[in-house]
Design a protein around this nucleic acid. Sequence first.
DNA 1: CCTATTTAGGATAAAAATGTCCTAAATAAA
DNA 2: TTTATTTAGGACATTTTTATCCTAAATAGG
Lengths: 150, 150
Amino acid sequence: MISKSCQYALRAVVYVASKTGENAKLNVKQIAREIDAPEAFTAKLLQTLNKHNIITSLKGPYGGFYIEDHQTAQPILNIVHAIDGLQVFSACGLGLKQCSEKRPCPFHNDYKTLRAKMLHTFQKITIKKLAKSVEDGYSFLSVSSTERRP
Amino acid sequence: MISKSCQYALRAVVYVASKTGENAKLNVKQIAREIDAPEAFTAKLLQTLNKHNIITSLKGPYGGFYIEDHQTAQPILNIVHAIDGLQVFSACGLGLKQCSEKRPCPFHNDYKTLRAKMLHTFQKITIKKLAKSVEDGYSFLSVSSTERRP
DNA sequence: CCTATTTAGGATAAAAATGTCCTAAATAAA
DNA sequence: TTTATTTAGGACATTTTTATCCTAAATAGG
């Protein structure tokens, strides 16, 4: 459905968003460790996400990655867009280059409905919403996610 | 969503099913040409599909691939099962190894709904249904699909 | 200014998916 | 029985995706 890279990216962004309220910047090492992803690879993804204005970065000591309020308001679709592109939401289910209303593949109608539902889901869910769910302890990003200290 | 291999397989099976009524067997060369897929690769896929009882094969002169009535009654889900496996319908949307009702990822609920819709769609559609749509000229498997001779 | 720290980005490497080639096995017909 | 044809299957090649490593650039603080 979406690539492994994109899943890493989603986890990374949600993690950053869930921690950013504390006004701290997070570095690659922390992020990669918490979302259980390879560090160097995560660095590339964060770089891409920064270029697409999903998150913000600052170099140097006390630097790192963080996310601003206007950024957390974005739908997670924007993350998919940045990493995988949007083809998944428009491509033919049988992989035909040419598949359209006028000349549909036999799977066209049902698949179109599926794609639309996927798009709608990724469009309606914001980064903030997922981050809050994690912050509030309703959901988790890793097996042994950091518990709040009492 | 599903792999390129699986898309080839779906096209191949639907093509064979749409031609099989004529009681003819189709060889790899014809099938690969018609569905616009690499021949040797298509051969491997057909082999796998045969082993999974999606289609039937016969070696030797006048041999080839065909599909029997009880096979066309199968849901296309079985093709996905044979080629990609069924993980796509149960795996976590964020790629977590552990993600469950008890310890969900933040995307869990919405993604679960999506997965269920995907499964339902692949389950309800039979090979026969797609083949008929092609046979009846309502849909197409390739850009320049063979027209019936008048 | 100098140093330490952190992201940016290019060059490579490893793994997975896709694709090819060759020989073996089965089968039908001459 | 021999030959031609077609699938089966193993070995190998290529491409794409995922992952690593190294140096450059930016920046904060001493």
